[in-house]
Every structure is written in C-alpha cells, then in structure tokens.
Nucleic acid binder design. Structure first.
Length: 517
RNA sequence: CGGGGCGUAGCACAGCCUGGUAGUGCGCUCGGUUUGGGACCGAGAGGCCGCAAGUUCGAAUCUUGCCGCCCCGACCA
C-alpha cells in the first residue's frame, strides 16, 4: 500500500506529507479497507489480519496458518464424511507423474503442459567454484517427472492393474493431497502455485453409471457449499471451451462473490473412456466381452476458503458460518480487578463445560494482556459467530451479553438456558448468512436480452442470464469484448427458446455470463 | 514474457533530490495508572539501510551491475 492508493483520499491531498504515512499507519492498524472502495485490497487484508494465511518466501506459494488450516480441516471432515457415505475410499498416489504418463491422453497433456513444474535431476553437489550447492549434471533423470497438476494419469496407469472384471467395478477412490499448477499471477487461496484439494477418481462399467457418479458428486459439492459454507451455488455444465482437459463433460458449481464476480467452487467431470483408452484399462463384462472402463473425476480445493471469505465477510472482518468456524463461541470476561476475574471465571467455567458438552467449540479468553475492547474487535475480525460477554454487572443480574457476528447485534440474556439459546442461535446464523448470500445473488442476477443491455450490465457486475447460440465463436467474441465468460449452462433451469444476445441466432436456453475469478 | 513500482527494525513507512551520529508509528520488554468496544504515561530492547563493485576523507543517500518482491496484461481451480 502506498500514499497514492485511491481508497485513501486524504493521501491525494498531502502526498508528500509525512503525516499521511502516520495517519495511514494508525488507520491501518485498526480498520480494514472497505469493500465498496477496494474489494481486492479488502480481501487481501482480511486473509492476513484474520490470521488465515500469508505469502511465503516461495514465490506463488502460501503458508496456511493454524486458524485458516482449522477451517480447511473442518471442510475436509464434512466432505470426507459425505464421500464415505456415498461409498468412496481414500487412498494416496505419487506426487510425481512421469512425463510419458502425462502424454498419453492427448487433450489432457495439452491442457496442462503450460503450467507444469518439472523435475529433471535427483541430486545436488557442492559448488566446486565456491559456496553453496549446484545441480549435479551427472544426476540427470532419464525421464523427467512432472509434479502432479492432477492425478488422472498416475491413477489410470494404476487402475490398469486393478481392473479386470466387471466385479472390480465400480472403483470409487478419493485422495486428499497437494497439487502444483505454475500460475503466472497468484492470490492467497484463490490462485496459488501449490494448493490443497481432494480428487475423486472413479471407474465404472457403463456410461450411465459414470454420468450418474459425476452428477452425484456435483450434488454432494452443492450440498456442502450451501449447508456448510452457506454459499448458494448454481449447478451447471461448462461449455466445451471451459471443459477440463480430457473430459467429455464438465459439471460445476458457480457462486457469486460480493463484488458481483463469479467463482467456480467445485467441478466434477465425466471422462468417458478417454483415460481407459489412453491407459488401456479394460474389463470383461458379464457377456465375457472386453470393454474400456468409464471414468469420472471431481475435486474441490482450498479456494473454497476464498469463496467463504468473499461471500459473507464485511467491513469489520471475517464472518464464518458456524458449521465451519474453528471457534463457534468465544466468552470474554469483563473485569477491573483480578478478584473480579476470579469471580467471573467461577461462573464461566461450568458454562464453558456445558457448552462443550453440547458439542459447541468454545473458547474462554481470560488472557490478561489484552483488554476486553481489544478482544471484541479481534474476535470480530476473526469471524467468531457468537460472543458472550460476562461482567460483574451480569453476575448481579444473572445475565450474559450475547453478540452475533453476522448482524453485529447484541442483547442481554438470562444465563439460565443460555446453552440452548446459543445452540439455536448458531443454527440461525448459519441459515441467515446463507439467506443473505442468496438474496444478494438474486438481486444481482439479471435477465439480459440485448447486446447493449449486456455491455452496460456487465460493467456493474453480477450474473447475466442471456441466450447464447452455442458456438465457440460467439463465446470468444463476448469474452473478447466484455471479459465476461459463460460460467455455466444451468442444469436446473427450464428450456426456453430465444435469440442469442450477441448473434441473434436461435438459442434453447439462457446461460450464466459473468466476469470470474 | 511485455509495461510500471518498490527493497531501510517483526510490520507499515520517512530520510535519498542537496553525501557527514539511522528515524517515526504499530508491535515487543519492564514499571505504573487504567479496564462494559481496538487505554494512557514513563523507561528500554531491536538495523551488514536487498547484494556486489565503483566514486569519495566519508555512501542508506551518487554511479554501474546483479538479485528479490509487488502491481497491470496474456494463462488458470
């Protein structure tokens, strides 16, 4: 940040004035940038100040800090349970993909070629000309290894040995791991060179079964996004142009962020027999005939944390959905003397245990090196859904101050029955932030029927529901002129014939256009 | 890879133009007063001024080279 940043108008008045810097320092130590003034700066600051992640010493790679990682762990837990409930098992495949594997499925290879990290040597040695280490030229690998950008190649090479009979199918495997895609420009959680994800890879005996699987997992993702993240999503199909490299069909869930831009929150692919053919994975069917297996793959990434932030948070900081909040309830004592604190703690300790017993993750912050006001602001910044404040006055009245993060409202409640109240409140917050996000999306989704309307609206942001003639040429032309892409062809909307917003040709249904992350 | 900007304390920055004891705020340590929405006062600790070479009696400051990072574009979950 510098003094010429447009979000700080004062700096324009006194760009040379050292007070400008002092003022900024003071300002920055407290308030966040405002969403309305500088959305991306607001996002970056939330990630850092809420202690979720930071840039690492390694270009393009992030350090996910404990608080951010705790959110990922909660996401993993919920998703993993859902994968298990739909019959999947976890396994682990190698980080390295021999180049020859990656080459086998041609479209796949082409799609990923330009963003691969390549291992060429297996040894370093002392630099004979001075300090440090150099790559040992005698340790060149016979075949280069690619750091996995995705694991279809390694996995289908393995499946070849696992699949012989229809009895071996379906094969339903998932893995949690890291992957590397060499990105030009990165942003914490949204796009980094290395990121964490899960990738499901399944093999089936029939085309229909594989398509059902791809759609089933899309449903799982949608359920997770809506019920856990509180993020309303549109289920859809990608256009051929936006498809995963090597897929027959790519399904996706698309969400709207608070700046009106779209973010893809998960994808599921029907891969047909492309990988089975590339890796020669055949099975004998019930009629004793050899057939290629049918495949799917599906994944969600740490990008969902970015989606979570951008969907719900406000100018005071992070707003976490209770189901994914590492700390759901924080209790803050308000006291003057150590004796008061002891008295308050006596009352809080059983309450703390009771909340814990009710399955609520609760933190009692009785640390003495920060004042209560500081704690209020800090936990607000970190998005803790519910805050309970207890002071001497409350002890006299038998009350607790209950503050909710989503509405920033406070009320005094009797301490008796507070656990039940908190439990209901957490549910209410979970529901409220979903409804808020849904309302926002609805208010920023527009039916657009003319090209002029399209060009005007896209500048203001949001989802544009418009007819498209189905050609790649039109799709490319629209992208070229407006930077808007077809986010998806919605699965659940009815066919309703019309005319393409760009070419005027016939169109069967509206698709979702937006600028995207 | 093209265009722009920046490297000075843990963080954010001033100082550089015009060379001469390295500064400010936040944070940190200690002491005191405070404490229902980011307290205040006092005393401290903390620096190869990105790296290297050059100019000079003297370089954070001038010159040259290198390295790194950030922003804007093309690519992308």
């Amino acid at each position: 940040m510098n003094c010429a940043d447009a979000s700080f108008p004062v700096s324009f008045l006194f760009p040379q004035n050292p007070l400008c810097a002092l003022w900024l320092n003071d300002f920055m130590s407290k308030a966040l940038p405002k969403r309305s003034e500088n959305y991306s700066e607001w996002y970056n600051e939330i990630v850092k100040r809420a202690d979720l992640a930071e840039n690492s010493a390694v270009r393009g790679c992030m350090v996910i800090k404990p608080y951010g990682y705790a959110i990922w762990e909660k996401m993993q837990r919920a998703l993993d349970d859902m994968f298990k409930a739909t019959g999947h098992q976890n396994a682990y495949f190698p980080l390295f993909v021999p180049k020859s594997f990656l080459e086998k499925e041609e479209e796949h290879a082409e799609g990923f070629a330009k963003e691969c990290a390549v291992v060429t040597h297996y040894r370093l040695k002392a630099n004979p000309d001075g300090k440090g280490l150099i790559v040992d030229p005698n340790a060149k690998l016979e075949e280069e290894l690619i750091v996995r950008p995705t694991s279809e190649a390694v996995i289908w090479n393995t499946y070849k040995n696992w699949i012989q009979s229809w009895r071996d199918l379906p094969l339903l495997i998932n893995q949690w791991c890291n992957i590397v895609r060499w990105e030009m420009r990165t942003r914490l959680f949204l796009r980094t060179t290395e990121f964490l994800w899960q990738e499901g890879h399944t093999a089936h005996a029939t085309e229909n079964e594989a398509i059902e699987e791809a759609e089933r997992m899309l449903e799982v993702y949608a359920t997770f996004a809506e019920n856990w993240i509180g993020l309303p999503v549109i289920l859809g199909l990608k256009t051929p142009n936006e498809r995963f490299a090597g897929a027959i069909e790519t399904y996706c869930i698309e969400a709207m962020m608070q700046d009106g831009k779209a973010l893809q929150a998960g994808t599921s692919h029907f891969l047909g027999q492309n990988f089975a053919k590339a890796f020669d994975v055949k099975f004998v069917n019930k009629e004793n005939q050899l057939e290629f297996a049918w495949a799917t793959s599906w994944g969600v990434t740490t990008r969902m944390i970015g989606a979570l932030i951008m969907a719900h948070s406000d100018d005071n900081g992070l707003v976490l959905p209770p189901k994914l909040a590492p700390v759901q309830v924080v209790i803050i004592p308000i006291y003057k003397t150590p004796e008061d604190l002891a008295t308050i703690s006596e009352k809080v300790n059983p309450l703390f245990e009771e909340l814990k017993a009710a399955g609520i993750s609760v933190k009692y912050d009785d640390s003495e090196h920060q004042r209560s006001g500081w704690k209020f602001a800090e936990y607000e910044l970190r998005g803790v859904p519910v805050r309970l404040g207890i002071g001497m006055r409350d002890l006299e009245n038998g009350t607790v101050e209950v503050a909710r993060r989503d509405t920033l409202s406070k009320e005094s409640k009797p301490i008796d029955g507070i656990v039940q109240h908190v439990r209901l409140l957490l549910d209410e917050i979970q529901e409220n932030i979903y409804n808020k996000a849904l309302k926002f999306r609805e208010e920023n989704t527009f039916m657009v029927d003319t090209w002029d309307q399209f060009k005007e609206q896209i500048e203001k942001g949001g989802f544009l529901m418009a007819h498209w003639d189905g050609t790649a040429e039109t799709e490319a032309a629209i992208k070229e002129e407006t930077k808007a892409t077809i986010r998806c062809i919605p699965l659940l909307s009815a066919e309703m014939a019309g005319k393409c917003v760009y070419s005027g040709k016939d169109s069967a249904k509206r698709v979702v256009f937006a600028r995207a992350y």
